[in-house]
Structure formats: structure tokens, C-alpha cells
Computed example of a mutant assay.
Amino acid sequence: MEFPPIYILSLEGAQRFAPLAEALEARGLAYEVIWGIDGRAQLPQEHEHRVDRAGAEARMGRPMTDGEFACALSHRKIYERIAAGAAPSAIVLEDDADPSLPFFDLGPALTDPPCGLLLFDHKNTYVKVRDRLILPGGVRAYRVALPPFLATGYMVSREVAAHLAFRNGPVVQPSDWPDAILQFDSYACDPRVVTQRGRSVGNSSLEAGRRKHQHKRRKSLRRLLYASYWRRWMTKRLARKLA
């Protein structure tokens, strides 16, 4: 079966990717495991120059945890690999990804990417319903109107990977998803063809880090004074929420 290159993002010692690897191997699909940056205890000092903590807090309304920075940098590590390769697209799966049968039907259609970014899993997703792709396996994909949550699984073109790796500035938000994706043809699958295996918000290591440091988004009525708030408000009301 012809598929784009598949990269699995995991942490050394985590041993979480075995079920995903078995599912891929059962269909004869090759993959490469990329060891991410471990920021669960602390972001390694050598990566500090690649993040903007003050900018992240200003943008997010709360401090980002070291685990969130490390996760975002780990995805960038894969983007660098994709940008340096020859394949026009690649698939990225986090180690707790659980691909469904439609995912395997969809893969061969992605070797020549139909868009710049295709999200297999997503949450809090607002889309433009009149701008859609019809994909194999009864899957439709709609252009995202606002960056959603989750980076469990996605296809990214080499060109978009190069931008996200080298031209998106220091990290100021989690891996799911930078605002830069709105510059490209970014779509979200409906239904989702990848889900998170055995994970809920309550047992996510990133969520545990936010709770440990009591990192909650601060809301202020001052946000009502900014045009960006009302642009987002209007975009949500003109879009449809998928998930």
C-alpha cells in the first residue's frame, strides 16, 4: 500500500507507541519513531533560546508549561525532517494515536497532498462548510476557520512543514495549532479518522503539568476592547463547529 512517510512522535522510555506500531505493521506500513524533547520535569536549557515565555503568556493569557514548550518543539523537529526530505507530504502521529479503518483508506490519496495540512484528529474545531474536500472512505474535510486543539495525527505538506519549522518564529503556543496554519490550505477531517487511545483531559501529562502549576487562562473584560476579540467572535458565528 502506497502511503506518505509516517513519523511517530514519542518520548524515550515512554513505551506508548506499541499498539500504534502494531496497527501500522499489520498493514505493511513503514514508519519512523522520532524521539521528542522531554520537558515533563524541565525544558532542557539548550532549547530555551527557541521559546518566548513572555510572548506565550501574553498570547495564551497564562504561562505555558515546559511540557507544552517541549511538545511544540518536538513537532518542529519532525517538520525539519519532513522539509529536508524528498516526499511531497508526510503523516505525523503522536504515540497514543489510534487510527481507524478510514485512515488506512485515506492514506494513498495523500501521497500527492490535496492540501497543505489535513487534521485527522481535532477538538474545538470551527470550519468553513462551503469549502470542503471529498476524500476516500466517505471522509470529508472542511477548511479550518480558527486553529483547533489536538495534534494527535495529521498530514502536512513539505512546503507547510518548512514554514512551521523555520519561519514561524520562537514558540509562543502549544503544538495544537499555530495561527500560521490559517495562511495555508488547512482542513479538518469529518469524521475524525484518528483518535487518542485511552487518554482524557484528566490524565494527559500536559494537562497534569498545567494543574501542577495552576496554569489557567486569565479572562479580563479588557479583551472586549480589542478588534482581534471581535474578529474571532464573528468568525465563530459564521463558521460551523465540527468537534
Rank of each mutant, 00 (worst) to 15 (best):
A87H: 13
I78L: 11
V172W: 04
A23T: 01
H75V: 06
L182M: 13
Y31N: 11
R81Y: 04
G36A: 04
A30N: 09
S228W: 11
D179N: 10
P148H: 08
Q15Y: 14
L119V: 11
A23M: 09
H163R: 12
V201R: 11
L24R: 07
G169I: 05
L106P: 00
S204M: 02
Q45M: 01
R130K: 03
F69N: 08
P44D: 04
G153R: 01
A18S: 12
G138W: 09
Q214I: 06
Y226Q: 15
D52T: 10
R240Q: 14
S186V: 03
A90M: 08
I37C: 00
G61R: 07
C189F: 05
L29W: 01
L43Q: 04
N124P: 01
Q173R: 15
D185V: 02
A26R: 14
A141F: 06
E57L: 09
G202M: 10
I91W: 01
P5V: 15
K241I: 13
G209L: 11
R210L: 13
R237P: 07
R223A: 13
V127N: 05
G138I: 12
L73D: 11
A30W: 00
G67P: 04
E46F: 02
L164S: 10
G13D: 06
R218N: 10
L117Q: 05
T235E: 09
A72E: 09
L150E: 09
I91T: 10
S89G: 09
G107R: 03
A109Y: 03
P102N: 06
A188M: 08
A18G: 08
A70Y: 04
D98M: 13
V194A: 06
W177V: 04
L146Y: 03
Q42H: 08
P113I: 06
R218A: 13
Y79R: 03
N168M: 04
S74K: 03
D38W: 02
R158C: 05
R62H: 14
D190F: 10
G202V: 03
A72Y: 07
R167W: 02
R197E: 08
P88F: 04
A14M: 10
Q42M: 00
A70I: 09
L73M: 13
